[in-house]
Amino acid sequence: MQRLLAAPGIIRNRAKIQATIANATIALRDHGGLPDLLWSFKPDDTPRPRTVAQIPTRSTESAALAKELRRRGFAFVGPTTMYALMEAIGIIDTHLMDSHRRATSGIWPH
């Protein structure tokens, strides 16, 4: 813990570090693992923003995912954080419609 609190490359918040360590120990393998759980919250459609102001920061699915993770004992997993995770792994595509990055994950069509 002390080493992590002194690490300049991370957010040095004791509660978040403790939550990260605790989250890493939650057993999900018997239930398909974390990837299966995350992907079970993939929406039927993805946002199609044309401006930065139209990019959502949360969704019904990210709220449901956060609720399920909290039910399983995870901490610091709110709807906005889960939405960012969903963006990062490609469950949703929030790149602007005219962006060269739109649909590059191969999961969602342009």
Results as ranks from 00 to 15, higher is better:
36 D>V: 13
30 D>Y: 14
6 A>V: 01
60 T>Y: 10
44 D>S: 10
78 G>M: 00
82 M>P: 04
58 R>S: 14
72 R>S: 06
10 I>V: 15
45 D>H: 14
62 S>G: 06
94 T>Y: 00
52 V>N: 12
6 A>Q: 15
65 L>K: 01
20 T>Q: 13
67 K>T: 11
26 I>M: 04
50 R>K: 10
87 E>W: 04
58 R>N: 12
47 P>N: 02
63 A>D: 14
97 M>I: 09
17 I>L: 14
91 I>A: 01
29 R>Q: 15
103 A>G: 03
86 M>D: 06
73 G>N: 12
69 L>C: 06
88 A>S: 15
11 I>K: 15
84 A>N: 12
19 A>F: 03
37 L>C: 08
72 R>P: 11
77 V>S: 05
70 R>I: 06
59 S>F: 00
17 I>R: 09
40 S>M: 06
105 S>W: 09
31 H>K: 13
81 T>K: 04
15 A>C: 14
81 T>L: 07
60 T>S: 13
31 H>S: 13
51 T>M: 07
72 R>M: 09
76 F>A: 01
74 F>Y: 15
74 F>D: 11
106 G>S: 07
11 I>L: 15
48 R>H: 11
105 S>A: 09
72 R>K: 13
109 P>H: 08
28 L>M: 13
69 L>E: 06
41 F>S: 03
6 A>P: 04
29 R>K: 14
83 Y>R: 00
45 D>L: 07
42 K>F: 03
9 G>M: 09
74 F>Q: 13
59 S>Y: 01
5 L>I: 05
15 A>M: 15
84 A>T: 08
48 R>G: 05
76 F>P: 03
13 N>G: 08
13 N>A: 10
50 R>N: 10
91 I>L: 06
66 A>C: 08
66 A>S: 15
36 D>H: 15
96 L>N: 04
110 H>F: 07
107 I>C: 11
95 H>G: 02
110 H>R: 15
91 I>S: 01
32 G>Q: 12
35 P>Q: 13
45 D>W: 11
64 A>E: 08
21 I>V: 12
88 A>D: 11
78 G>V: 00
94 T>V: 02
54 Q>S: 12
34 L>E: 02
105 S>P: 02
23 N>G: 06
100 H>E: 14
